[in-house]
Design a protein around this nucleic acid. Structure first.
Lengths: 172, 172
DNA sequence: CCTGCGTTTCATTTTTTCTTGAAACGAATG
DNA sequence: CATTCGTTTCAAGAAAAAATGAAACGCAGG
């Protein structure tokens, strides 16, 4: 019945062994996404989707990577929130299928916008607070600390000015 | 001579309570250094040293931060290796005393040089390996994956070119 | 409506990372 | 040189982060 064209070398989408190429991609993304604090499972998922020529359903991802249901679901959710993966509709299949968004700069820009910038803002708040607290120090020490805080502010300013520039550069 | 209005806050250099200003600085650096993957204790140490107008001995650091001997020793070692802290000689005292290097950009440049660049090099190695493996794919899928790997390489190239520029910018 | 498939949630377990403190070390001092 | 003070090391413990999988959910198809 199901005859048709022997399903070809579909091995990469239903067997369980990962091809060497897939392993390379996966390891690359594990290491890469770790930099911005994402867990291994997220790197695995994105790596697999990145080299996969066609959308994959969640249970395929689970089976091929050998990760748990929870990790897959949460990892995909996170990646979708980042905009790094999107779900595509697959006719005649109740399951969602997932594709990697190839715009890698998203990882960097999201990281900058969601992590670095808010942290820098909070740091700036603390610096202001420190400046307010300066008068509570003995005057001899105050000069020294004041200069340091000033320096801190200066450096942070520089960082804050640089980030938008980097983002612009990343977006082509 | 210390006249001024209030001389009270001398406590901050030998008692055990941290001043509010010190707390702000410490929390700031904990959060800041966490970005580049350094543990809390390291942030605490650097933060304390940063606002301290004079060099501190290790046991002072231990006492004031309430951290252990091991954490202090290892944290200071790490910070010295990064070049973010240096030991200064204090006449008539057997103990080492530590000062924060105020060149904050060091954290960023060390991170770029020691973390990002090597990772990118390794990633580039993997990309080359993937390109070698491409011929093992079925030809229909190969085109797609080939284009993606090409894209990956392009993006990584861009990143690698950007890093030296960022470093230059950070160093004034 | 019910049923069943696919997905999400979340308490628990596992793994990883950080901290602790005692023991080893070493170098200045008497 | 023996002693003492200061520092480093590292095995063990604590804390934090990530993964697991069973239960709850929700929705398409009957």
């Amino acid at each position: 019945m199901t005859g048709s064209t022997t399903m070809e070398v579909q091995q990469s989408s239903r067997g369980s062994e990962l091809s060497e190429l897939e392993v390379e991609a996966i390891e690359m993304f594990i290491n890469f996404l770790k930099i911005i604090g994402l867990p291994k499972s997220v790197g695995e998922i994105y790596g697999l989707l990145f080299v996969s020529p066609r959308p994959l359903a969640m249970d395929t991802i689970i089976e091929r990577l050998g990760i748990s249901l929870g990790a897959a679901s949460q990892g995909l959710k996170l990646l979708r929130n980042l905009g790094a993966v999107k779900a595509v509709y697959s006719p005649g299949d109740r399951r969602d299928h997932f594709v990697a968004d190839l715009e890698l700069s998203k990882f960097a820009t999201v990281f900058i916008k969601e992590e670095l910038m808010p942290r820098m803002d909070r740091a700036m708040g603390r610096i202001k607070r420190m400046e307010e607290l300066l008068p509570t120090m003995s005057s001899s020490d105050r000069k020294i600390t004041e200069a340091r805080i000033e320096r801190l502010r200066h450096w942070l300013d520089k960082g804050q000015k640089m980030l938008p520039w980097i983002m612009k550069f990343l977006l082509r």
